[in-house]
Structure formats: structure tokens, C-alpha cells
Amino acid sequence: MSIPLDASEWRREAVVKAALAAGQAKAKKDESRSADMIVLKDSFYDMNTRDNDGTPESTHRRWRASYPQGC
């Protein structure tokens, strides 16, 4: 985050307070997840990053068809 040097004192304070509030809200959201829930990196859910062996597209289609949407 950057705060312009020529910003007024009240504006700088407002930006800092907003940044702190956003950080606290994110921390609260992250902590509210169930303890038994596993959260994986976003790249795990991207089908294009799962295959490093050059599996044919037909195999990818078969894999996608065998799992219901949203899993």
C-alpha cells in the first residue's frame, strides 16, 4: 500500500485505519474456517497444473466426467 506524501493527515490516518481493518477482517475470516477443513493452494484446483506427465486430453475429459461439478 502506498500513501501519497502530499496527502493530508486525516487522509493518511484513514488509509492506515482502512488497511488495518482489512487485515483484521481477513485474519478473522481465515481463522473462522473449520479446523478439520483442508484448504489447498488455488493451483491445485486448476486442471492445467495437475498433469506433468503429458496425459492425453481424452484422459482429462474422462477424469472430469467421473467427478461431479463443484468437487
Score class of each variant (00 low, 15 high):
Trp10Ala: 15
Ala19Trp: 11
Thr49Ala: 11
Ala7Ile: 01
Gly54Ala: 10
Trp63Glu: 15
Ala19Gln: 05
Lys29Ile: 11
Ser8His: 07
Lys17Leu: 13
Pro56Tyr: 10
Ser32Tyr: 03
Asp36Arg: 03
Gly70Arg: 15
His60Cys: 00
Ser43Leu: 03
Pro56Gly: 01
Met47Tyr: 11
Lys17Phe: 12
Thr55Glu: 08
Leu5Asn: 03
Asp30Ile: 08
Gly54Asn: 07
Ala65Cys: 00
Pro68Met: 10
Tyr45Ile: 09
Asp6Thr: 02
Ala35Asp: 06
Arg11Thr: 08
Cys71Ile: 04
Ser8Gln: 06
Val39Cys: 04
Ala35Ser: 11
Lys41Gly: 02
Ile38Thr: 09
Asp51Trp: 05
Arg61Ala: 11
Lys41Glu: 08
Arg64Ser: 01
Lys28Cys: 02
Ser34Glu: 06
Thr55His: 12
Thr59Met: 14
Trp10Asp: 12
Ser2Cys: 12
Ser32Leu: 08
Asp51Ser: 05
Thr55Ile: 03
Thr55Pro: 00
Glu9Arg: 06
Pro56Asp: 10
Met47Ser: 07
Asp6Gln: 08
Ser34Arg: 09
Gly54Glu: 04
Leu20Ile: 15
Gln24Leu: 13
Arg64Cys: 00
Ser34Lys: 02
Val39Ser: 14
Ala21Asp: 11
Thr59His: 03
Leu5Arg: 02
Lys29Arg: 14
Arg64Pro: 00
Trp10Lys: 09
Thr49Met: 02
Ala14Phe: 13
Gly23Ser: 15
Ala35Tyr: 04
Glu9Cys: 08
Met1Arg: 08
Val39Gln: 12
Ser32Phe: 09
Pro56Ile: 10
Ala14Asn: 08
Ser58Gly: 01
Pro68Ser: 14
Pro68Ala: 15
Val16Leu: 11
Ala21Arg: 15
Glu13Leu: 12
Ser34Asn: 11
Trp63Ser: 10
Ala21Pro: 01
Ala19His: 12
Ser58Ile: 13
Ala7Cys: 02
Ser32Met: 10
Thr49Cys: 06
Asp36Pro: 00
Ala65Gln: 15
Glu57Gln: 14
Asp36Ala: 01
Gly70Trp: 11
Ala7Ser: 12
His60Thr: 10
Ala27Ile: 14
Gly54Tyr: 03
Arg64Met: 13
Gly23Lys: 10
Ala21His: 08
Asp51Thr: 04
Arg33Cys: 06
Arg12Phe: 01
Gln24Ala: 13
Ala14Leu: 14
Ala18Gly: 06
Lys17Gln: 13
Gln24Pro: 04
Leu5Lys: 04
Glu13Gln: 13
Asp51Ile: 00
Arg64Asp: 12
Gln24Cys: 02
Pro68Phe: 02
Thr55Tyr: 01
Met47Ile: 11
Cys71Asn: 13
Leu5Ser: 07
Asp53Cys: 05
Ser66Pro: 01
Ser43Glu: 15
Glu31Leu: 13
Arg11Asp: 09
Ala22Arg: 14
Arg61Asn: 06
Asp6Cys: 03
Gly23Phe: 02
Tyr67Ile: 14
